[in-house]
Design a protein around this nucleic acid. Structure first.
Lengths: 225, 225
DNA sequence: AAATCACCTTACATCTATTGTAAGTGTTTC
DNA sequence: GAAACACTTACAATAGATGTAAGGTGATTT
C-alpha cells in the first residue's frame, strides 16, 4: 500500500489524519515542522506528502519548495479557508493539489487517491521509435493520428517495448495475457498478434514486430536518428 | 487548430520546422532568440513552444526558465544528441518534453500531439462535493473507491456539474447526448438518468441529482465544509 | 520434391457492455 | 381521482473484444 507522510503541527489534527489514513490501509508517517523537515520527509521516501501550510511564519511555503527540489512525489497542501489567496501561491510553489480545512474524510481520501493515481501512472508515454504508446489507456500515437488498442493488443505491444530489443517468448506473452505460461494457447496468441499488427498497419506502421522463428517476437530495430 | 511558436536560430532548420508544422495544419510563429524572446513568445500566447536550446551561450536555458515563469504552456525542447547531459537539466528547467536533433518528422509530430493533448486535458478532475469526476475517462471517485461510468452517464453528470447549481433542462441534456433538442426522447433520457443514479448509489452517493418537476434536473446543493 | 513444421490469416461464435424501447408503477397537481 | 409527469424494470438490438476452428503460406528437413 502507498506510503503517506504528514507534515502537521497541530497534534490533534495530526492524530486524526493518521487515524483516517491508517484505517484506509495507508502506511503513514507524521511529523511536525522543523528546520530540517524537508530532509526528514525526503528520507521517508513517501508516495505522497500531506502538508499543512498553516504553519508559523512562511515555513510551510519553504518546505513545499524544498520538497519539490528534492524530487519528492506529489504534494497535497492543506490550507485554511481564509487563506484562499495562498492556494494559487501553493500551486506555483509546486504543490500538486490543495484542499481547504476543515474538510471531510471522503473528500480528503478522494483527493489523495487521485494524486496517487496521477503520479503512479506517471511513466507517461512509451517511445516506440516510430510511434508512442500510452501504457495506461493503450492509445497508440503516430504523427497526427492516434488509435485505441484493445487490452490484449496493448499488453503485447507494451511487453515487446519493455523487453526491446530482446526477443519475447510466447510463454512470456502468455503470462502477460492470461497470467499463466503452463498451458500456452498458441493459436489465440497468434490471432492477437495478427490483430496488433493490423492495428499498427492502420497507422502505416509496417513490419514493426519481427518474428524470430522458434523463439518468439521482438520489435524491429529502429533507425537511429 | 493549435498555435505553436518556434524559437530557433538556424534559418534553415526554422524554415523546415515551420513547413512541417504548417502542412500539419498548425498555426505557426517562428522567431530567433534575442534578449526579449520570452516576452515575445509569451505575447504570442501559443498552445505549445518548440524551443531549440542549442543557442549561443546559456540563453536557451534562460529563455526556458523565463517562459515557465510567464506561465506559458507546454515547452518542447530540441537539443543536439551530444548534449544529452543537458536533457535532464532541461526538464528541471521546466521543459515538458525534449527531443534530440536531428529527428524525423513523425517523431516530432507525435511528441507535439502528445504534449498538446496532455495540456489540453489539463482541467483535471471536476469536484462534485462528495465525489470527483474525471471528465475525460468518466471515472467517478469517492473515498477509496472508483467506478467507470458509461459515456451517456458521464456526459449527463458532467453537464450537471458544469451548470451547477442551476437546473438543466431535458432539451439541454438531449443536446448533449444526441446533438439535438428538436425531438426529445424523454424516455431514453429518463432511463439514462436512472442508470446514472444507480451508478452513484453504488458509491453510496444518494440523492445527488434532484428532479425539478417540469424544468429538468440539477445537482443538489452540497454541504459546505 | 514431398513432407513437415512454424507461422499466419480469415471467418465465425460467444460474451459483455451500452443503449434504446416498451410496458408498467409511482407521485404530484388540480 | 384523473391527468400529467416522473420513475423503474425487463427486454432486444448493437458493437467490441476475445477465443475457436479451419485452412493457407513459406521455410526447413529428409
Amino acid at each position: 500500500m502507498a506510503k503517506i507522510t504528514i507534515v502537521e503541527d497541530d497534534v490533534w489534527m495530526r492524530e486524526e489524519l493518521v487515524d483516517i489514513l491508517q484505517k484506509e490501509g495507508y502506511e503513514v508517517a507524521a511529523i511536525a515542522a522543523f528546520h530540517d523537515t524537508a530532509t526528514q520527509v525526503a528520507a521517508s521516501a513517501p508516495d505522497l506528502v500531506l502538508l499543512d501550510i498553516n504553519l508559523p511564519g512562511q515555513s510551510g511555503f519553504d518546505i513545499c519548495k524544498a520538497l519539490k527540489l528534492n524530487g519528492v512525489g506529489p504534494i497535497l497542501v492543506l490550507t485554511s479557508r481564509d487563506k484562499l489567496q495562498d492556494e494559487l501561491h501553493g500551486l506555483d510553489l509546486g504543490a500538486d493539489d490543495y484542499l481547504t480545512k476543515p474538510c471531510n474524510r471522503d473528500r480528503l481520501l478522494a483527493r489523495i487517491l487521485n494524486l496517487l493515481r496521477r503520479f503512479e501512472k506517471q511513466p507517461g508515454l512509451v517511445d516506440g521509435g516510430h510511434f508512442l504508446l500510452d501504457p495506461n489507456t493503450f492509445t497508440l500515437y503516430k504523427g497526427s493520428q492516434s488509435l485505441l488498442l484493445s487490452a490484449n493488443e496493448g499488453k503485447i505491444l507494451l511487453t515487446l517495448l519493455q523487453y526491446r530489443p530482446e526477443v519475447v517468448s510466447k510463454s512470456a506473452l502468455s503470462q502477460v495475457l492470461w497470467g499463466t505460461d503452463q498451458y500456452i494457447d498458441e493459436n489465440a496468441l497468434q490471432v492477437n498478434l495478427t490483430r496488433l499488427r493490423k492495428a499498427l498497419r492502420q497507422l502505416k506502421l509496417e513490419n514493426q514486430i519481427e518474428t524470430v522463428r522458434g523463439r518468439g517476437y521482438r520489435l524491429r530495430e529502429q533507425v537511429k536518428m
